[in-house]
């Protein structure tokens, strides 16, 4: 289903959900939950957004049933730890590549995905100062390295 333009800012979180559907359904579930909550704040009044959000809610309810055996879904505190560990793992992989001078598409994507997952952590409550800093750094690094590679420059 096409994403209404009013909900454009959740498109990357929804794409991350799609990419993790098989690899890590818990990540997919919480990315969609974040998109749902954010989408409702952005616009849940216009018919096109309501329609989109109702579909997304249907999908979340189905996923919750299918994943009911997973404690990361039935207990949000476990889910919180799962998403935080995953985000930090992504961040550390990209950071390690960065510090070793290995710049490539995969590490840019890891930095960016980590930053999106730090956004997702906000469904569990206010982000810690450390996670806010990690998110800022990961997003900046992803943009910076992407631009360097695009312009044929070596990142510093």
């Amino acid at each position: 289903m096409a994403l209404p333009p009013q909900l454009k800012s959740i498109q990357h979180h929804l794409r991350t959900a799609q990419e993790h559907e098989k690899r890590d359904p818990v990540v997919a579930y919480y990315c969609r939950l974040y998109a749902m909550q954010t989408g409702m704040k952005l616009d849940s009044k216009t018919p096109e957004c309501r329609k989109f959000l109702v579909k997304l809610m249907d999908q979340l309810e189905t996923m919750k049933k299918e994943l009911s055996d997973s404690e990361s879904i039935s207990q949000e505190i476990v889910g919180n730890a799962h998403i935080e560990n995953y985000a930090i793992k992504m961040f550390l992989y990209a950071d390690n590549e960065d510090r070793s001078g290995r710049f490539h598409k995969n590490m840019i994507k890891s930095f960016y995905t980590a930053s999106l997952l730090f956004d997702v952590l906000s469904v569990f409550g206010e982000l810690s100062e450390e996670n806010i800093q990690h998110r800022k750094y990961a997003r900046w690094k992803a943009t910076y390295i992407h631009n360097c590679l695009k312009n044929g420059e070596t990142p510093q």
Partner: peptide
């Protein structure tokens, strides 16, 4: 019709909020 439209919209919005709360075991 404007107010009917508005109340339909807010009822649907409410339903969505309720479903979200239920999904998160907050009811």
């Amino acid at each position: 019709t404007g107010s009917v439209g508005t109340s339909v919209a807010s009822a649907e919005q409410d339903e969505l909020s309720q479903r979200l709360a239920k999904l998160r075991d907050q009811v």
